[in-house]
Amino acid sequence: MKKKMKRNKGLFFILPWIIGLLWFQMYPFVMSLYYSFTNYTMLKEPKLVGLTNYVRLLTSDMEFWPSMKVTAIYALVVVPCKLAFALIIAMLLNKNVKGIGMFRTLYYLPSILGGSIAIAVVWKILFMRDGAVNHLLSGLGIGPRDWLGSPNTALGTICILSVWQFGSSMVLFLAALKQVPASLYEAAIIDGANRFQCFFKITLPMITSILFFNLIMQMINALQEFTSAFVITGGGPMKSTYVLGMKLYTDAFKYYKMGYASALSWIMFLIIICLSMLVFKSSSAWVYYEDGGEF
């Protein structure tokens, strides 16, 4: 009886969270699935249209596949670059030098600012024709370029912004690096291992669990990219930065095709789920858990 009371008390205290989860996450989640089978426009009652939205998206929408391609390129560039950059900086910040705390804070700052509209606007100003980047390059004798106006460089410029926001991955890598026992390095050095061997044979295997976590999180973030493309280029020029998130927004809020956009969001969801499962499946081959990985 007492045990039951205790359990109910616990449930009672997490009730606000459960209500929040059901109302703000599960309800929209389920409703978006329902809307994806309707012609919902936000302003009118939805009418069931079966699989029309999905069929139209996959077969006759001229923007869907190019948008998929842009998103894939973005994710393929951003995720590895960001992880590599975060790991390199984390290793540098893992040294015991004077003022290391300040450096750690400074390197984390872009991530605090990163998701905001303001930083996207700053990025736009930096890369415009009369911006700081072109001024710096002119010192090297390189003429001004329209970084965001050219379809060849616009996506790259947005990728750089995303890679620059490496702070959260870096903090996790730093924590993982701290956990690697110093005795392993000592033993390896005594056996004559050089720095590269230490990194590839000890450091990397020992932090694979965090690498795995970062990979999953960054992959999901990259596939859901929206803010930078929306604020900096608006998806242009020539749709070269028109990621799926932009397409979803445009269909839903500019064209009022909420049902169609819901179908797109479910396709995105399925892609993300499949890729995540693939990475999870592969993890048994390359992720090392000290406790064997049992949950």
Binding site: D146, L148, G149, T233, G234, G236
Partner: peptide
């Protein structure tokens, strides 16, 4: 040129 004006779209 479009490349130059694109950033001031809107």
């Amino acid at each position: 040129p479009y490349e130059e004006s694109m950033i001031f779209k809107g």
